[in-house]
Structures are given as structure tokens and as C-alpha cells.
Write a protein that binds this DNA or RNA. Sequence first.
DNA 1: AGTATATATCGGAAATTAGCGAAATATCAT
DNA 2: ATGATATTTCGCTAATTTCCGATATATACT
Lengths: 132, 132
Amino acid sequence: MAEELRTLVERLKAVSHPLRLRVLSLLELGELCNCQIAETLQVPASSVSEALRELRRAGFVAERKDGRWVFMSLVSRELASPFLKGLLEEAAAVPELQQDRARALAVRALAIPVVCSKVQRDAPTEREAARV
Amino acid sequence: MAEELRTLVERLKAVSHPLRLRVLSLLELGELCNCQIAETLQVPASSVSEALRELRRAGFVAERKDGRWVFMSLVSRELASPFLKGLLEEAAAVPELQQDRARALAVRALAIPVVCSKVQRDAPTEREAARV
DNA sequence: AGTATATATCGGAAATTAGCGAAATATCAT
DNA sequence: ATGATATTTCGCTAATTTCCGATATATACT
């Protein structure tokens, strides 16, 4: 049970990154699939996928596959950890993350296929116009 | 009061580092000077100084100068932050950090000049022999 | 089978960070 | 002032991380 220093550092590094922190914060709303997150945050799907991989590696999120979609959610055991609980509490007060969450709610209100077919999956559509 | 995403990420990055996390953990015992930390952790004084600089930049620690010594301590306001509180709670259970703290208590029991004159201040004395 | 779509992985250039000895700075002691 | 000592900054290489388009893989639909 006793956690290693290295493990704790890896967990910290996993969340010390703007995109990964934004994704983590979104998942507090409940499970989301890659494309919902990509659409919400207006970033390439491959970047979201990489962010999720790191968060999974650190043990924060788990995946549930359903057909071609992969839904990610926070691991409840982690949610009980003092560190993550404190971090999310602090994150809840960050304006940018609040805006992300508001967008996510709007995105989640749509049917997934509708959302996902809109996602810029690599073509440099309008990344520049990514106003929050 | 509202914290920026970037600020939160910088705070996280500051502690996502083995040495910096060890130093932060030590400071929970109370204020310590650079050489006490260097002696406790058996690392070069310049590395400790850099670690402290980052922790200070992130707002976690403050300095109190007293003659040629600079005593560092945790900022009490930060200690109240949910994130740092959670992190320290988790850190308290990490064996390596527990050992560090035990060493720090022993080091602190000695007079500072005695401790500091022993510190390898750059000469590669016996860094290899750094058994915990 | 073939097409479409969702996600993951790869490649690789650019940026950032780590680590530590050497040198600089600051303060005390004589 | 000279020397000793505590701390910081500098220089610089190596290692790591970031980012995203391209490519690969997986599943669904027809």
C-alpha cells in the first residue's frame, strides 16, 4: 500500500500539464469519450488521446469501451485520494476550467455521432479560430 | 482571487520533481536552511538552492535571512490550500519521505555551523556513497 | 468486401527541464 | 582587508517533454 516517491511524482507530473488538467477536470462531470473532449476543448483528437493515455498510466482514469467509442472516467478510488480531491477542489475555482465544463455540458447534450463527425480529426480546419 | 489555469499548472510542475518534493516535505517540519537540507538529503547545495528557488517562485515557501543563512519555510497561506494539504497528507505516507524527515530531525539537533561545514558544497566528496 | 468513423500510435522537430561543477555574491570573523 | 563560509547564479550538455500531422488499428454500417 505504501506509495513510492517515484509513483507520487509520476502522478503529479501527469496532471502538471494544461491539456491534461483540463481533461481531468472535465471528467469530473462524468464519463466522456475522446471526441466529446476534443470537441469541447477544440484540440486535435490525437492530443486528447495522448492526454488520456497519460492520465490512465498515472491511474487517474479508466476506460470503458462501447463499440467504436471509448468512454473515459475518473477512477473512484483515486477520487478519494487526498491529493486528487484537493486538486479538483482547487480546479473548481479556475475560470478557464469552469468554462470548459460549461462547454462540455452543451456538447454532452448532443448525440455523440453528431458531435464526433464535427471534430477536426487532423485536418487543420480552424484550430487558429479556437476562441474559448 | 480566482486562480488561472497556468498558475495552477506552474504550482503542480513545481512539486512534480523528486528533489523538490523531498524539500517541500522536509519543510513541513519547520524552517530549515539550505545547508541543513543539503546535508539531510546528501545532494549538492546548488541543487538544493535551485529546488528552493522553484518552490519559492511557485509561492510555496518563503525565506527569512539571518546573517549568512537563509531559512526557508512553508507559506502558511499555502498550507491551507486544498491541493497542498492533500499532497502533504499523501506525502506523509511515503517511506522515502519519512526517512528524509527522520534524518532532518537528527541534522537539526546539531548546531548549524557544525552541519554546514560538513556539506559537500561542490567538491565531489562522497556523493557516490550516498546511501540513505 | 468496402467505406466511414473513433481512437491509438508513430515520427520527429522544437521547446523545456535536469543536474551539477565552476564562478559569483554576500555575510561573518579575525 | 583577508579569509572562511552560505547561498545563488551561470554554463552547458544530456535527457525529457510537447505537439501535431500522418499513419495504423478497430469497430460499425451497408
